[in-house]
């Protein structure tokens, strides 16, 4: 593709000498970590809310609403969030990107945690209450430990979703704030440059790392699911 003249760290060096690029990388990481953290918390609460819904219809309705953002095309999410932030007076930039990432990661976390909750035998909660646990004890000593594999998986999924996202970010990023994928896009529109090659490799490695971690988490989950109490 290019004349190959041996390996060189030159492009990486160039990449990191570029403070603007460094800031973008940092932005991407901060947005990913924060959005994963918040979406995990809200997603877990959401899964509990769906799990605790008494009526079947309420449960199904909540689940459908939850999945809207998963099935919606990115352009629609991006465009509608753009309108939302403009109306709400949120300045496009760090906060609008962070809020969007939290918003579209929440349903993934819910979908990761909910099966774990469903898997949990309801008698576990009865047993804890029977042994004197109040609602807080039940939540912290039984439910959260039980669903923790789902919570971890949700966190990593949220992290990858955030790192991976281009379309939604592209809509709500405004001027002055940029993430890696938006930066790659605008560089790529200008044509091939070795700068992006280095950047791409970086993003690729990070994604791969996350995938491997996620893989190990699911592997552990599968092992753990055989651990449930035997049922007839």
């Amino acid at each position: 593709m290019f004349d190959f003249k041996g390996f060189s760290m030159q492009w990486y060096r160039e990449l990191f000498h570029d403070t603007r690029m460094l800031i973008i990388v940092l932005n991407t990481i901060i947005v990913a970590l924060l959005s994963a953290l918040f979406s995990t918390i809200f997603g877990m609460l959401g899964a509990l809310a769906i799990y605790n819904a008494k009526k079947r219809q309420t449960k199904n309705m909540l689940l459908s609403l939850n999945n809207v953002l998963i099935v919606s095309p990115d352009v629609i999410i991006g465009a509608s969030f753009l309108i939302l932030f403009t109306i709400a007076g949120v300045k496009l930039g760090f906060y609008s990107v962070l809020l969007s990432h939290i918003a579209f990661s929440i349903p993934i976390v819910v979908l990761m945690v909910l099966p774990k909750l469903m898997e949990m035998s309801p008698s576990l909660i009865d047993a804890a209450r029977d042994l004197g646990a109040n609602s807080w004890d039940v939540l912290t000593k039984v439910i959260i430990p039980f669903i923790s594999p789902g919570i971890f998986a949700g966190f990593f999924m949220a992290l990858t979703y955030s790192l991976d996202d281009f379309s939604v970010t592209f809509f709500v990023t405004g001027n002055g704030f940029s993430t890696l994928s938006v930066e790659i896009y605008s560089l790529a529109r200008r044509g091939i440059s070795l700068n992006i090659n280095a950047l791409s490799a970086l993003l690729f490695l990070v994604t791969l790392l996350l995938v491997v971690i996620y893989h190990f988490i699911t592997l552990r989950n599968n092992k753990a699911s055989g651990l449930g109490v035997q049922k007839r």
Partner: peptide, 30 residues
């Protein structure tokens, strides 16, 4: 949780994230 009654469940409802000792100690720890 306020009753002086304890139950042995059909599926035992042992907490899978705790070992034998911690399962038995659950009520006392509470």
């Amino acid at each position: 949780n306020k009753r002086q009654v304890n139950t042995v469940f059909q599926d035992y409802a042992l907490f899978p994230h705790l070992n034998v000792f911690e399962n038995v100690a659950f009520g006392l720890r509470i």
